[in-house]
Design a binder for these strands. Structure first.
Lengths: 173, 173
DNA sequence: TGCAGATCATCTATTTTATAGACGATATTA
DNA sequence: TAATATCGTCTATAAAATAGATGATCTGCA
């Protein structure tokens, strides 16, 4: 089939960024969902647990804002987690309107276990890049996404340069 | 040295990748939605139009598979576009079960216009990276996402090295 | 003190979106 | 020709997001 070479100048067509992001996220969530095996709320609940684990004593509303979920969505995600005994809602003694979310002992164990699974998924997805490239990729991803607080990007500027150098050495030939 | 420093080894906590992706995609879609100003189906319809534009004569099912949508979802996205007179469904004369989707004249115009808007959004989002870094980032993103057919990644291996070198020069100091 | 207004979490209802299954039309194979 | 498979649509259902109302509590102020 003689297919004329199609338009090389269009390499970076609009929507390509969104498409790649959407596809990658879809794959990610599918794999994570599978790896999380029955955690009610799937990858989002896992994210909630991660946040709770690292920044305790958050009100629900602050958690919701941080993750970018609606507060009512968070409510039923927490319902699910609480139903499984993975988190507890503790009334803030200083402000009895708000709840502190804390992991139960069981929740801590579950989180550790699930973290491994999720990390394996992430590792698998990034396997198409070299190890250092993967780190740099993530650094940039965090920067582009404006994700700075809560999760720290893996590398600082100096390390970035170092990895760039290595990547350059191995890839350019 | 006791542990004033909190867990630097944990920099790359599980779920961080998914979170950054989700946040970035949310921002992207919100901005695109706004920029697309009334296109029914929003960013997804736009993507459909892009695909249709570049690879004509696709059956609906092949389009759906390529984008990763359910065929029934595609049906109502196309309904919307057809309702606005942006695309037409043409029965394949060789297989009267399937429809070829083609842009109308009006659709071509709309696509061109919307493409500019979307590109502006993408450009804005990537503005946190240097220009060459942005290209390299996209190249890697495409590779990780496994997006190769349909949209070509912006750079080949040799160019990658070149940009890496430049990025290194400007960033390492 | 008591009242007005704001905030936190929940609940309810609505809307939107995704998924599953059946269907009619057509194609392919044996 | 009969049996089976495919394409696109439709209908019904399920899952999720969103908006608004509610009850409990807090704050500030007269």
């Amino acid at each position: 089939m003689s297919k004329a070479e199609p338009k090389d100048h269009e390499f970076l067509s609009a929507a390509s960024l969104g498409w790649a992001l959407a596809k990658l996220l879809r794959d990610y969530q599918k794999q994570v969902e599978a790896a999380l095996n029955g955690l009610p709320g799937g990858s989002r609940s896992f994210l909630v647990m991660s946040i709770v684990d690292r920044e305790r004593c958050q009100s629900q509303i602050s958690i919701a804002e941080k993750i970018g979920l609606d507060k009512t969505t968070l409510t039923y995600l927490l319902d699910g987690l609480e139903g499984q005994g993975l988190i507890k809602r503790v009334t803030d003694p200083n402000d009895r309107r708000s709840r502190h979310i804390v992991l139960t002992e069981q929740g801590v164990k579950a989180l550790a276990q699930h973290s491994k699974a999720v990390q394996a998924v992430e590792h698998g997805l990034l396997a198409r890049l070299g190890g250092d490239e993967a780190k740099l990729f993530q650094t940039w991803l965090f920067r582009v996404a404006g994700v700075g607080e809560g999760f720290k990007p893996p590398l600082d500027e100096a390390e970035t340069a170092e990895i760039c150098r290595a990547s350059l050495a191995s890839e350019s030939r």
